[in-house]
């Protein structure tokens, strides 16, 4: 909650603030879906400032355990905006994303991403 995350797609938003984790009350971690409010946006983008949007956390500085027991962490906290059905709003994804998204059924984001870590 209240975490400001970078938006790493071309949906038009620059920064969003987490206002709710979709599942659970402890906040969101890598791969989780959040509800967020758009704090900064590019002019003429799909998403406007002040809108409430859904997003998938694709990078988190907090380490997350992998299925084999090792851990993974990233440089920053970043989201990709999605609609309620889980389809990404933008058409591109920047930077690396974890392969755990496949487990969360966000295959579309994975296919858009250039680097999979």
């Amino acid at each position: 909650m209240r975490t400001v995350l970078k938006v790493v797609d071309n949906s038009g938003a620059k920064k969003v603030m987490c206002i709710q984790a979709v599942k659970g009350k402890k906040g969101a971690r890598l791969g989780d879906t959040i509800v967020a409010s758009v704090k900064e946006a590019y002019p003429n983008g799909k998403v406007k400032k002040g809108k409430v949007v859904h997003g998938v956390v694709v990078r988190a500085a907090m380490q997350r355990g992998r299925c084999d027991g090792s851990e993974v962490k990233f440089d920053d906290n970043a989201v990709v905006l999605v609609d309620k059905q889980g389809q990404p709003i933008g058409t591109r994804v920047f930077g690396p994303v974890p392969h755990e998204l496949r487990k969360k059924k966000h295959v579309k984001i994975l296919s858009l991403a250039k680097h999979i870590a």
């Binding site: 380490q63 090792s70 851990e71 962490k73 440089d75 920053d76 974890p98």
Partner: peptide, 11 residues
């Protein structure tokens, strides 16, 4: 299953 990996923004 051992250790940790850090992914920088340039992947």
């Amino acid at each position: 299953g051992h250790g940790i990996q850090f992914v920088r923004n340039d992947a």
